[in-house]
Design a binder for these strands. Structure first.
Lengths: 227, 227
DNA sequence: ACGATTGGTGAGTGGCACTATCCAGACTAG
DNA sequence: CTAGTCTGGATAGTGCCACTCACCAATCGT
């Protein structure tokens, strides 16, 4: 398969494929001549993976590369692969001014939460930082919130994780298993948040507004900033 | 309070505050003279809100403006406010090439899920689109996944939403209530995903790897693309 | 033989979130 | 009253990202 067919079959423009090749997201094709290379189904699949991670999930191209590289390098090692994948941060997350990149910084609230839940997680997991920073931010906005308020959510997260792992364990092939683990972890995130919003609207309607919800009569559809 | 004090107290650079003023994220101060204006605590608070939404949550400046505007316009109308806020999409979410902006497009899988859960949510809720697109993407990657696989998550989302609403209902002042509703919905999202990851690592360790988790011995801390 | 296509490269584009510079007017210390 | 600093407002510039375009010699299809 040559580049044009790859483009046609994936829906990704020719020039963009070349860009991904340059950035190392897509491995080069098997060169058959000085100006000719052959691509195969693995390239097509990888292209779809890239678009899924950057499109649905909103990862930056660089972050997607890291996930993909980790997947390629640690095929079959589900546990370690997930550990690596957790280290990748989505695009635009994290205040640019706040240089709090120290991995081993103390995150006391996350630690207390982890302890209270009886969880066994590494001190380096960046999720700890996210939790502490979120709590700090909420309190800076005069909202009373501490790690104990997160306990019910942690319990629900635990069940969510059990579902995740249950599903992954149905896969026997270790290579496939590792890949699915990462994809389900990452790609499901927007969907889970979407579910929460649907449930919130439902709950809000049930409790408060018996009349029609606002969303149907919304004036104009606002945009994030995308095309 | 003049602009410099606003800057000092918020930690946001002078020039950035001017930028926010230009973009309409921050309302102009009360002009006392041709080249002098007075800012107050509400400006400071709004500035903190902006940084929370763009920093912790990763919203684009334009999206943050929409949330803030909705909050200012619908103070006290929690239900409608949430409906509006749901329409805002985070930065970088959504494939740039895929022009699927039609609000009322059919999202059959989300509809089936909503139906199965017995939820009452508007057809215009953009969460529907996210769900359908996620499922389509997963299947395009040869992962068997349909709305029924999301049912357990939907149930957990329902409980999450109940926690959310429970908390919000403890607030009596309707103005404060609406604001907290939006903030907890938005700012908590990264933390909830972080909890899921912590729970996943814990569950993965418990089931699979009794040895040390990968995250502690990770070679280099990868970056999204941030600071 | 020859026009179309290919892989590769370098340069350009547009959007975003700032950041820097400038300016006339205003306040402040001496 | 003056010198120096600060202010709000405007314009232009910066850096980064994710592409996108243009070009080239080599190669392919006919």
């Amino acid at each position: 398969m040559r580049i044009s067919e790859l483009s046609r079959r994936s829906g990704v423009p020719n020039a963009t494929i070349k860009y991904y090749l340059r950035e190392g997201l897509l491995p080069p094709g098997r060169a058959t001549a000085a100006t000719q290379a052959e691509y195969d189904e693995t390239h097509l699949r990888r292209l779809r993976l890239i678009r899924a991670l950057t499109g649905v999930r909103g990862l930056s191209v660089a972050a997607a590369k890291q996930v993909l590289d980790a997947m390629a390098e640690h095929r079959g090692d589900t546990h370690e692969l997930l550990g690596i994948a957790f280290g990748i941060r989505p695009a635009g997350t994290g205040a640019p001014g706040t240089a709090d990149d120290d991995r081993s910084a103390e995150h006391p609230e996350a630690a207390a939460l982890v302890d209270a839940m009886g969880w066994s997680v590494s001190a380096g997991n960046p999720a700890r930082q996210i939790i502490d920073r979120t709590l700090q931010t909420l309190r800076s906005l005069d909202i009373e919130y501490d790690w104990q308020a997160l306990l019910p959510y942690a319990e629900l997260a635990e069940r969510t994780a059990r579902h995740d792992l249950d599903r992954i364990e149905t896969i026997t092939d270790p290579l496939e298993k590792a890949e699915h683990a990462v994809l389900l972890t990452f790609l499901l995130e927007p969907a889970l948040m979407a579910l929460r919003r649907l449930a919130q609207e439902n709950e809000s309607t049930a409790r408060h507004g018996g009349d029609g919800p606002a969303s149907t009569a919304r004036p104009a559809p606002p945009e994030g900033h995308g095309p």
